[in-house]
Amino acid sequence: MRRVEPLRLMQLHDGELPKVEAAELARLLAGDPDARAALAGLDQLGDFLRRYADERSAGVGDLASDVMARLDEDPARVSGWRQHRPARLTGGRRWVWGAAGALAAAAALTLLFVARRPGAPAADAARLAALGSAARSAAAQPGPARGVLAAAPREPSEPGVSIEAVDFGPRNGTIFMVPVGGEATTPVVWVVDPPATSGGEARSL
């Protein structure tokens, strides 16, 4: 009995064989249980890979969206800004500022993350919210800005960590604070990154 070659089996599975050859192979398969099992295995493998890819991409995408959505739910906590991709001029590192964007972004970047003072928690929250909205306004301006160094406004209480400047480069990103008990908070700089393609290796973008 003629043995069905694995390559032809895969071609049949993938629909790559001409009709005549496919019919011929189907006839051979009728008398070859091993080849039929191998073909069924290819079907299962294909199903598995498709399902895995779907679940993975769906999961990652949803999660990234969930993170941003969760931050949007609590704008007072988002004290940073989401920088749009800056306009690039000629040369490797020459960037321009939109004047309005620069001012607002500078305000947003001069963040001082402090433990909320017992006497004025609302004021701090409002201030941070204002900074956040200013930053978003800046991001909406044409001619978006690149990060800057700026002097942080001083607070009476000593901060645990204060963000002095952030330059997200070509990325989008945001800054927010995570409460860690009591009045203390920890600043988080979140950089938006496309999902890794495989094996944990970062894509070379």
Binding site: G160, V161, A165, G169, T186, V189, D193
Partner: peptide
């Protein structure tokens, strides 16, 4: 990737950089 992050940090106090895939 993240061009620059500059902080003033008190000893022992953490700050977090997250989001890399």
């Amino acid at each position: 990737f993240l061009a620059k992050l500059e902080v003033k940090a008190r000893r022992g106090k953490p700050f977090i950089v997250a989001g890399q895939s």
